[in-house]
Structure formats: C-alpha cells, structure tokens
Write a protein that binds this DNA or RNA. Structure first.
Length: 262
DNA sequence: ATGGTTGCACAGCAA
C-alpha cells in the first residue's frame, strides 16, 4: 500500500480555501496536514474539501489563531491531541490510518523576535513546547508514526539562505536547533525530506515582506516531514511545491510532500 | 540598521 502526504501552513484556511482545493485537485495527496487554520473547527469549509474527495477530517481549532487539520481521502481515526505547555492552544492533532500509521500534525510556536527567554516570553514558550515534545515522545516510544508540521525551526545550514546572517534570528539559533535535535532523538525520528534530498539549499517559507520573494530567495525550511525508523525507509519522492508560494494571494509557506510505500 | 507584508477583526498583536 502506498500513500502520499503533504504538510502546509495555510495561514487561514477560510481565506485560502480555494488554494487548498487547488492543491487537492492538482496534486492529490492522500493526506493533507494544515497548520495556522485560524478558524474554529465548525467554520472550516469541510463541504468544499469533501467535494474534492477529502471526506475525512480531524481538526483542532480556535478563533483567529493557530489551528491544525488533517484532511484525508483515506479513512482516519481521531486519536486525540495534547495541549502542549497547557495554554489551550490548538497546535497538535493526531490521526491514525487503517494501515496503522499514526500521523502527528504540529504547529510549533514561532517564538517572537528576540532569541532570549529572559526578555521575550514567547521564545521561552517555544523552547518549553519543544522540551515537552521531546519528553512526550520519549515516553510514548511510537512505532509506525509520521510527524509533520510547521516546526518553525530551520535546523541545517542549507535550510536557510544565510547560515551566518541567521544565527541570531529566531528559527535558526543554536539553542532552537539543539532543542529540535532533542525532539528528533527522542524517538529516533528520521528527517524524511533530507533523507530524500540530502544536498543543497531547501526552503519551505519565504517572508511576505520581501519585494520579490522569488528573486531574493531568502527562504527557510520551517516545515518538516519526519518518520519513525521502522517506516522511514519506505519514504520517497519528497519535494517542496515552491510554485504554490507564487499562487494568487498565497500563504507564505509552500507545501512539503512525501510518499510512503508500506 | 531599519523596514518591509499579511491575517484577524476592527486596534494592535502575532507571524
């Protein structure tokens, strides 16, 4: 059995519902994980997605902020969520496919501007969120699991347009990279995207603030697809749909894809 | 060095 999956920070699922359906119709992943839906669950345009063939939806939402959803052509079971750092934020949801694979969809806090928890509470929140992810997965020791989402960290030097210029910029600081590595180590998570594309610059996010995002190409790889070691070797064909960043009224993130043969 | 844009929701915060 083979299935494909994509993760996309949509930055408002209602404003960009037509872009979601465009992606579903043109790229047709079996499962699409969305972050930053910025919508209560009951206001997600589920009929639109069902009409495109995605009849199974597992989501957590809140008004205006955060929000994660898993849209699927395949039957999925809602296997819950965890309120990381106990703020009542909708930043995690999990679903299980009939083949036994569990998919965790995360929206990790962005962390504010200053990379110092003493002066920026949001940075501390981000680090604490990552620490709780590490401890949770360490205790769970998951098998046949996939973890995707906007993790808001670009860990490698070639995951950012300038390693040197971003060392003190939130998303690429050594302490964040270390925290993310500890999450990854907690369950032996394999970075599927980099397993498939080991070399070269690779980005999934480009700021809205650039005059010409495509020409400047000052991107970062903030969106990730990870898998536990038992299924990581079944993954292939990873890619970033950079084109989507150039669509009309785009999200600032592009979707990241992977396929699993199980 | 600074400011640049977007979404939500209607001011200013979060990203």
């Amino acid at each position: 059995m083979s299935f494909s999956l994509a993760t996309w920070n949509i930055n408002s699922v209602r404003l960009r519902a037509d872009l979601v359906t465009k992606l579903l119709r043109e790229e047709a992943p079996d499962v699409l994980c969305l972050q930053e839906c910025k919508s209560p669950v009951d206001k997600i345009p589920v009929e639109l997605f069902a009409a495109a063939g995605y009849r199974h939806i597992v989501a957590r939402g809140q008004k205006g902020y955060n929000g994660v959803a898993i849209l699927s052509k395949l039957l999925v079971e809602d296997v819950g969520h965890r309120d990381f750092v106990a703020r009542g934020d909708a930043r995690h949801v999990a679903a299980r496919l009939e083949n036994g694979v569990t998919i965790h969809n995360f929206y990790v806090p962005a962390g504010g501007d200053l990379p110092d928890r003493e002066v920026n509470e949001k940075f501390g929140h981000k680090l604490d969120f990552l620490t709780e992810m590490r401890d949770w997965f360490h205790g769970e020791t998951p098998a046949k699991s996939i973890l995707v989402g906007d993790l808001n960290i670009a860990p490698r030097e070639d995951d950012v347009w300038s390693h040197k210029q971003l060392l003190k910029v939130v998303s690429h600081t050594p302490i964040e990279v270390d925290h993310l590595a500890q999450v990854q180590d907690s369950a032996g998570w394999v970075d599927v995207t980099r397993k498939d594309i080991p070399e070269g610059q690779l980005y999934s996010w480009w700021s809205y603030r650039a005059r010409d995002w495509d020409a400047a190409d000052k991107g970062r790889r903030l969106d990730h697809v990870w898998a536990t070691p038992d299924i990581a070797n079944a993954a292939h064909s990873s890619r970033v749909l950079r084109d989507a960043r150039g669509w009309e009224k785009p999200s600032d993130h592009a979707p990241v894809f992977a396929t699993f043969d199980l």
